[in-house]
């Protein structure tokens, strides 16, 4: 197990390095520089600024300076926000983004699984059709459309929830709903089809032949097996939720990481681009690692490491 984790850790570092390199190349391929738009500055000032941020060095030297900053986890000061470092921005934005993301994924998981199981148990019944209608709607409506719709109906017209920002639990309802509906729909559909398949298995009949209570047959015997495909796509869903937070944060004016990420690209704020990208990818890679561990816990047939003596 330790060996497996070490191996995975090494792979994670490698992945992050590749992402960082690609980001650096792309970042330098975009024309323009952080100081292009400022009309007032004369050439001497611009040169001074470039020197200050090491932008006068050849790209290869800049690249190593960036790698060093990643390795030391100190991404330096922001170019466009002179009073704060990249680490400050991440420290401020991440907790909020994480809160939004985690609440959304939990809501998506629980409601999706419950909806899927109910639909499978009442196959071709009213609940099934209702759940699948919700699921199809959830999959087909983009989250930014849903978000604006929710604001319009429930916040502006209805007045049940605040329109934007991130302060109290009431503020969290609409962004979470907008972000979680898509993944929830995917999870619900997947759980349903996988439950339907598992429910026809012999071991379910055997569990019923033992005289077990129906809820035990469903939860202990069926659900555990039916969740395997859900766990498999959890990684992809996490990535989806992550990118979803950019849009949702923008719409609801939530001061999370997504806002800085989008802004930094528009403004060519190189250290912030670098910092947020590396941070996001590290987070995602780690989440995928956790998903793999969960996979092994759910299904004993999947061995994460070679058993000794086998």
């Amino acid at each position: 197990m330790v060996r497996y984790i070490l191996k995975r850790f090494f792979m994670m570092i490698l992945t992050i390095w590749i992402i960082a390199t690609l980001t650096f190349v792309l970042m330098n391929a975009i024309p323009g520089s952080p100081f292009n738009e400022e009309r007032t500055s004369n050439e001497a000032v611009q040169e001074n600024l470039e020197r200050h941020f090491n932008l006068d060095e050849p790209p290869i030297v800049q690249y190593f300076i960036y790698l060093k900053s990643i390795a030391t986890l100190d991404f330096g000061p922001s170019i466009k926000k002179p009073n704060s470092t990249v680490n400050d921005l991440l420290g401020r934005g991440f907790p909020i983004s994480a809160e939004l993301g985690i609440i959304a994924i939990l809501v998506a998981l629980f409601s999706g699984i419950i909806l899927g199981v109910l639909a499978a148990l009442r196959h071709n019944g009213i609940i099934d059709y209702l759940a699948m209608t919700i699921a199809v709607l959830g999959i087909s409506i983009p989250n930014f459309v849903l978000a604006t719709l929710l604001i319009q109906q429930l916040a502006v017209n209805g007045g049940f929830f605040p329109v934007a920002t991130w302060q109290s639990p009431m503020h969290m309802v609409l962004p979470t709903l907008a972000l979680a509906t898509g993944p929830m729909a995917i999870i619900a559909r997947l759980t349903r089809s996988s439950m339907l398949e598992v429910l026809t298995q012999d071991y379910i009949k055997m569990a019923r032949a033992k005289g077990l209570a129906p809820y035990k047959v469903v939860i202990k015997h069926a659900l555990k097996n039916a969740l395997m495909p859900v766990v498999t796509i959890l990684g992809t869903l996490l990535a989806g939720i992550l990118t979803g937070t950019f849009v949702i944060e923008k719409i609801f004016a939530i001061p999370g990481m997504g806002k800085y990420f989008v802004e930094s690209i528009n403004q060519r704020d190189y250290p912030v681009i670098m910092g947020t990208t590396v941070f996001y990818s590290a987070f995602l890679v780690f989440a995928l690692f956790l998903v793999d561990i969960a996979y092994g816990l759910l299904d004993p047939r999947i061995k994460l490491h070679k058993e000794e003596g086998n």
Binding site: D202, Y203, M206, K224, N225
Partner: peptide, 17 residues
Amino acid sequence: ISMIFQDPMTALNPTLT
């Protein structure tokens, strides 16, 4: 009344001891 099934490869739940 108990029952034994045809295929022992599928009659046991793979995720439980």
